[in-house]
Design a protein around this nucleic acid. Structure first.
Lengths: 209, 209
DNA sequence: ATAATAGTGTCTTTAAGACAGTATCGA
DNA sequence: TCGATACTGTCTTAAAGACACTATTAT
């Protein structure tokens, strides 16, 4: 029998903050060596027979301290196999994404996706490599998009999320047409609450499912 | 220490047969239980510290009997974590793709991609789930496309590959414009050898790298 | 010449991008 | 009313799709 590589699961947890109008990445200082005290993606070793989905929840609750029901969706990104990525020995890292709807707990540090601080292990590289994959999922991967934006949102919020993920802000009218083509997404005639600074109250988009 | 899941690597090996004008999937009858004698994707257990690229080559040479230098490119597809996928116990399967340029050895069975026979384990599902990912790589992932088509090819061959992967055959003129936009691909003014049945000799496309 | 295959030019459709102009709120 | 925000309609550009037509070969 071949001696097997350990498999770790590292999670890119995203949360859209409606007040800050930006998408944030959840990281946490490491409790143990190596890299004790340094910020890192939440990650755990995959147990025997454990599903990736379970390990994702375990990482997000255990390492970030989020409540399990704040995780709205999860999925795969890519696998990193550089043998020297962990000083303790060769491990495979499966990068996954998760979306959270509110910042429960007090361990997590939330960093704007466009200002991610240096991270432990090869996590900088994981984030850098996965960013285009995440940007590509927006408006194409429905669970991801719905997980990030929530059940109801306005065009302005959709613009904020798009800007955080892709780095550029589309014209509202054009994004509206893109959203019209997203299956399961519906432009309602409901008005959201008016904004603090005044201005026309925006219409609400909803998922039909 | 948590007991770790075993990691296997299963490879979708693709080869374009210019005579048969179609893309073929490389599979082989299993030598041992479980599923002895049944066709399966070439797969191996990932060794400790082994790179995915090495394991891919090991699977393709060991299980399909191909010479190592027939593999023209490799890459990742997705991870399958169903715990009951292997009757011997829970294993994670990382699905990878590889392209081969000729059918060396005598173990491999080459099945047309549109007529894949039933396979062992959950390999039917792996192939089914990965087919859209493969179709998406064509003309977008340059190493994949070049690995499949080879250094030089004609428009007719590009049409054949596209049809095998996507299930529908574009108009030659339109595919030509798509190829004009592929970085590193060049429309030459060289003519390929005339065809057996007559007809105008086609022009040759080449990779500049 | 004819069958067979390859390549070119153009029209149509769809999606993305860019704006000007209009609408609706709070103060 | 004015500043601030939201929505609508239209023009432009780029890509994909669909063909009619022309070109070059073997027989």
């Amino acid at each position: 029998m071949i001696e097997s590589t350990l498999v770790s699961v590292d999670v890119i947890v995203l949360r859209f903050d409606r007040d800050a109008r930006a998408v944030f990445l959840g990281v946490a200082p490491r409790a143990h060596e190596p890299f004790a005290g340094e910020l890192a993606l939440p990650g755990v070793l995959l147990g025997k027979g454990e599903r990736l989905r379970e390990a994702t929840t375990r990482a997000v609750t255990g390492k970030l301290g989020l409540a399990a029901d704040t995780v709205t969706a999860t999925g795969q990104l890519a696998t990193f196999d550089e043998p020297s990525r962990d000083p303790r020995g060769p491990t495979l890292s499966i990068a996954l994404w998760a979306t959270a709807d509110r910042p429960t707990g007090d361990v997590a540090v939330w960093a704007r996706l466009d200002e991610v601080p240096p991270l432990a292990f090869d996590h900088d590289r994981i984030v850098a490599d996965c960013r285009p994959l995440l940007a590509d999922k927006l408006w194409r991967d429905v669970p991801f998009t719905a997980g990030l934006l929530g059940r109801e949102f306005t065009t302005a919020q959709a613009l904020d999320v798009t800007e955080s993920l892709t780095g550029d802000r589309p014209y509202p009218a054009n994004l509206g047409r893109t959203m019209d083509r997203v299956p399961g997404l519906e432009r309602t005639s409901e008005h959201a609450a008016a904004l603090p600074k005044g201005g026309r109250p925006p219409l609400v988009w909803k998922w039909t499912t």
